[in-house]
Design a protein around this nucleic acid. Structure first.
Length: 587
DNA sequence: GCCGTTTTCGGCCCGACTGTTTTCAGTCG
């Protein structure tokens, strides 16, 4: 009997095979097949064990007989022959080399083979002593470039949080947008797609050819630039003071829509679009959409009329796909009939749910938080300080809860007297205990307007136990919202591995919502569960989890994730006006 | 390695930039 496997381990397994194949100099298409299979499984909402037991993995797109039998072998024996062989052939240390920018599988394998080294420390030595430069196809500059990249890699992590990337991108856009010749400017890449972490920052400008050289020089000479990595006529790359790579592309205004789509990606989305274009005897590239010539290549004399990204999708019989959805993660099914998915927008938010004050670990008083909400045009604040179990965060005793309610009542009376259309809701972020109970008695919980249940302790419980905890909490009669379901901290700490698909089904059944925590460290619920949430009709809320006034503005990142997950305003609690929200909360 | 109502063999997205090459391979997105 095959033993149960986790989807994640299979995905990692296939990815490793693909990576090692490239490093071993295998045919790239073969390696790509493993990557594609990994993507397919990553996007799978059903239990992978069902496919293994029934031997039906080959029903999935991109998984053929060979890869299926690799997975079956793994489930049966815990190992895969091809991977065992590859691991013997390719030393561990080489995988880290892939993080060096400018180093791909070919160069890595060549250097490894010819110099007999496997560690980055050795690579640095060989760059310095001239051995690398002496290899055919390499030179002084290659060695220098490798050393520089390694230095950067050691100083900065490859990716950063979205708030960090946003700050850098906005700075560059601000300094370029009013330059002579700029017709249009936009952020592209993973930042435009609202990915939870960002590698490079892409900026696209539409300008006439004559203006491009001056714009490129302006860009590479900006204050925020620490180092110029490359400068060409249409593309330049720099390293910012913060250590982020920023790429600028300049295209003619005619090419802008196709270029914007192209550089927004994702790569997987683009590949799928290009294949779709080919099926229609069309050719899509960064310059536009073209009819094919006899050699099945773009006939640049026969472009299709394109004034916007939406036009390109229309020519391919698709509705406009908002950037956040472009991950080849089911978005094509959403727009196959030409319809456009209605996604929640920042302006839809009517209030703030899940924020802290000085009563627990927040930095501002209730009044200050409330006034900041009013300034931002919100109608309500669901204040949720920590419950008493969270002692490290100044969690509230029952007595303190009642005192806090007096303050909230007084503030609400004051706001009403002044004719302000604003209400503070009495909420709590109640710890979910090790056995899934909440940490106040039911009669107290019943009195809150809003109960958020979150796990803050026992984060390392095994997946099954964590799922039990969360499911039990989700079924609690007084809970409204599960907070940060995995507890992850991006680029720092993995979340728990509970099966969220099951939690989502269960929560939806019990009319409990799961938040999208908008704090850029968290962005949890992960957008990848959006499809499951949609199928189950799960409700969510975009929660800043604010501990300070600036934290309130993190909802912008939550909006990005909610859109990525495919949420419309109708399934986001804090788009409801106060009356409707209260009705929902009273279930 | 995967895929297919034009295909079970021959494709698999494609162009810019770099560095090392006298005509292109490797990398990147």
């Amino acid at each position: 009997m095959p033993k149960p496997v986790q989807k994640d381990e299979i995905v990692a397994l296939l990815e490793e095979i693909g990576t090692l194949m490239r490093l071993a100099g295998e045919n790239d298409f073969r390696a790509m097949a493993f990557d594609r299979a990994a993507r397919t499984l990553e996007n799978l909402n059903d239990d992978i064990n069902k496919y293994i037991e029934e031997q039906t993995l080959t029903d999935l797109k991109g998984i053929g007989k060979s890869i299926a039998s690799d997975v079956y072998a793994y489930a049966e024996t815990g190992s895969v022959p091809v991977l065992v062989k590859l691991r013997k052939q390719v030393p561990d240390g080489l995988i880290a080399w892939l993080g060096i920018s400018g180093m791909g599988p070919k160069k890595i394998y060549k250097i490894h083979k010819e110099l007999g080294i496997t560690e980055i420390a050795e690579l640095k030595e060989k760059c310095k002593d001239g051995s690398v430069a002496a290899l055919s196809g390499m030179g002084e500059k290659s060695a220098e470039k490798i050393l520089k990249s390694v230095a950067w890699m050691e100083e900065f992590s490859e990716r950063c949080r979205i708030d960090e990337a946003t700050a850098v991108a906005e700075l560059f856009v601000e300094k370029m947008k009013d330059a002579d010749g700029v017709r249009e400017i936009s952020v592209a890449g993973s930042l435009r797609r609202a990915s939870e972490t960002i590698g490079d920052i892409d900026i696209l400008i539409a300008a006439e050819e004559k203006d491009a050289p001056a714009l490129m020089s302006r860009f590479t000479g900006l204050d925020g630039v620490k180092e110029v990595l490359g400068q060409g006529e249409t593309k330049s790359s720099v390293r910012s003071n913060e250590g982020r790579q920023v790429d600028l592309r300049i295209v003619s205004p005619d090419h802008y829509p196709a270029a914007l789509m192209y550089f927004t990606g994702s790569k997987e989305h683009n590949v799928a679009l290009r294949q779709r274009a080919r099926e229609k005897k069309l050719q899509l590239n960064e310059y536009g959409l073209f009819h094919q010539n006899e050699e099945k290549q773009a006939d640049f004399d026969r472009p299709l009329p394109v004034k916007s990204e939406a036009d390109i999708y229309r020519h391919l019989d698709l509705g406009y796909i908002p950037p956040e959805l472009r991950e080849d993660h089911g978005e094509f099914e959403l727009v196959s009939g030409g319809e456009v998915p209605e996604l929640v927008e920042l302006s839809d938010l009517r209030g703030i749910l899940h924020a802290h004050s000085t009563w627990s670990d927040g930095k501002r008083s209730i009044r200050e938080m409330a006034e900041a909400c009013m300034e931002r045009g919100y109608e309500y604040l669901g204040l949720t300080d920590h419950s008493h179990t969270a002692a490290y965060a100044g969690g509230l005793s029952i007595e303190r809860v009642r005192q806090q309610w007096e303050e909230i009542d007084a503030l609400n009376r004051e706001f009403a007297d002044k004719g302000k259309d604003f209400v503070i809701l009495k909420g709590i972020e109640s710890d979910i205990l090790a056995d899934g109970r909440l940490d106040y008695p039911d009669d107290l919980l019943a009195e809150f307007d809003l109960v958020v249940g979150s796990v803050h302790s026992g984060l390392d419980h095994p997946p099954e136990k964590m799922l039990d905890r969360l499911m039990r909490a989700a079924a609690h009669q007084h809970i409204h919202l599960i907070g940060h379901p995995t507890g992850r901290l991006l680029l720092r700490r993995d979340g728990n591995k509970a099966d969220l698909n099951r939690l989502i089904e269960h929560a939806a059944e019990h009319k409990t919502a799961i938040e999208i925590n908008a704090n850029p460290w968290r962005l949890d619920l992960d957008w990848r569960y959006g499809r499951k949430a949609r199928e189950c009709g799960l409700m969510s809320a975009i929660c800043p989890d604010a501990h300070d006034i600036s934290g309130l503005d993190h909802v912008r990142y939550g909006i990005g994730i909610a859109r990525k997950a495919g949420f419309g305003a109708g399934r986001i609690l804090n788009t409801k006006p106060l009356g409707e929200l209260k009705k929902w909360l009273s279930k």
